[in-house]
């Protein structure tokens, strides 16, 4: 009886506790659900904000120069005539050099890590390559300016100039004095910087190749290279291209390292060894010095242009990698 009474007496408060707890839980559920949802939408709005702001900021320059902005080489702050052709040229050319050097080395490292590397070393070498991605770009800049550029100037560029001097097309590409800094040096620094990005994506997609496929190829008598060329690369091509695009996106937008070593000259020179400029380097170098509205606006137009270019490249990269994920999921 006593027991029943105590149960009965404790049941009533318990019920009211449950009711208030339920209300509290409903409230918290709503708070968390809508709080997280609005945070997620904020991420979306921020990107929208970036695009709108850049268009707004570049309006003055775009309406002044029109489409000619993209095809004019002239960049004269004094007479206020601005054209983006030289930075666009520099951006594309440095990224092209970076890709030409970076892609074979990255894929080489990925092949090494997945096919050749002794298992004991695999983890530490992977980590070391990934640490390259962690080093801030300004460190690459200071290293490029004080170590790489003098080295290239003293030992590499003179050899290139004398080797290609008589050759019709290459002679023009490697003409002029060895400055040390310039488009070529910027391309080399960029190739080092994109290395870890391409390598880690490539390595990851190489590891998705089913071992039985590779083993069958080996059993048929294929050499290691033939297995890579005929089995691994065809199987992973979408992912590898995705990784390359990711690296390209990085190279196109890279700022500080390039600013240090490119020489910041607003002109298009036929020679790779000459100083030049890129979109990001122009902004970094000149933005705080830009005094007139039109000058600032022109630099923001460059930023908008850079954003659109990298957006396209990165979107392609994501699309490629997504397609591979779907394929692997099936």
């Amino acid at each position: 009886m006593n027991q029943v009474a105590s149960v009965a007496s404790s049941a009533a408060p318990a019920n009211s506790i449950t009711a208030s707890a339920l209300r509290r839980h409903t409230l918290w559920d709503a708070v968390l659900k809508h709080g997280t949802r609005s945070a997620a939408i904020t991420v979306l709005l921020l990107l929208g904000g970036v695009i709108v702001t850049l268009i707004e900021g570049s309006w003055l320059s775009l309406s002044t120069f029109g489409p000619g902005f993209l095809t004019t080489e002239k960049w004269n702050p004094v007479s206020e005539e601005f054209g983006a052709l030289a930075p666009i040229y520099g951006t594309l050319l440095t990224s092209l050099i970076a890709m030409l050097i970076g892609i074979p080395i990255s894929i080489g490292i990925a092949i090494f890590l997945t096919e050749l590397c002794p298992p004991r070393l695999k983890r530490s070498i992977s980590t070391a390559i990934e640490l390259l991605a962690g080093i801030p770009s300004i460190i690459y800049g200071i290293w490029g300016l004080f170590v790489l550029a003098p080295f290239l100037q003293a030992h590499v560029q003179p050899v290139m100039i004398s080797t290609f001097a008589g050759v019709p097309l290459l002679g023009g590409l490697f003409a002029g004095p060895p400055y040390g800094i310039g488009i070529f040096t910027a391309g080399i620094i960029l190739s080092i910087m994109v290395l870890p990005y391409i390598t880690s994506v490539t390595r990851d997609v190489f590891e998705t190749v089913p071992p039985t496929l590779k083993e069958s190829a080996y059993a048929l008598g294929c050499t290691t290279w033939e297995v890579v060329r005929q089995v691994v690369l065809p199987f992973t091509s979408t992912g590898v291209i995705g990784g390359i695009m990711l690296g390209l996106g990085r190279a196109l937008g890279e700022t500080m390292a390039v600013t240090f070593v490119i020489g910041n000259a607003h002109r298009i020179s036929g020679s790779l060894l000459a100083p030049g400029t890129t979109i990001s380097a122009s902004i970094a170098n000149e933005f705080t010095e830009a005094e007139t509205e039109l000058y600032t606006s022109s630099l923001i137009s460059l930023g908008l242009l850079l954003f659109l270019i990298t957006f396209t490249v990165l979107a392609i990269a994501r699309f490629m990698l997504l397609r591979l994920q779907r394929k692997a999921g099936r």
């Binding site: 991420v43 921020l46 990107l47 904000g49 970036v50 702001t53 850049l54 900021g57 990711l246 996106g249 990085r250 196109l252 937008g253 890279e254 700022t255 990001s280 902004i283 970094a284 933005f287 923001i300 930023g303 850079l306 954003f307 990298t310 957006f311 990165l314 979107a315 994501r318």
Partner: peptide
């Protein structure tokens, strides 16, 4: 996209 967007563009924004 934001993850790999050039940081200088974020600065401009």
């Amino acid at each position: 996209i934001l993850l790999s967007a050039p940081s200088i563009v974020i600065g401009l924004f």
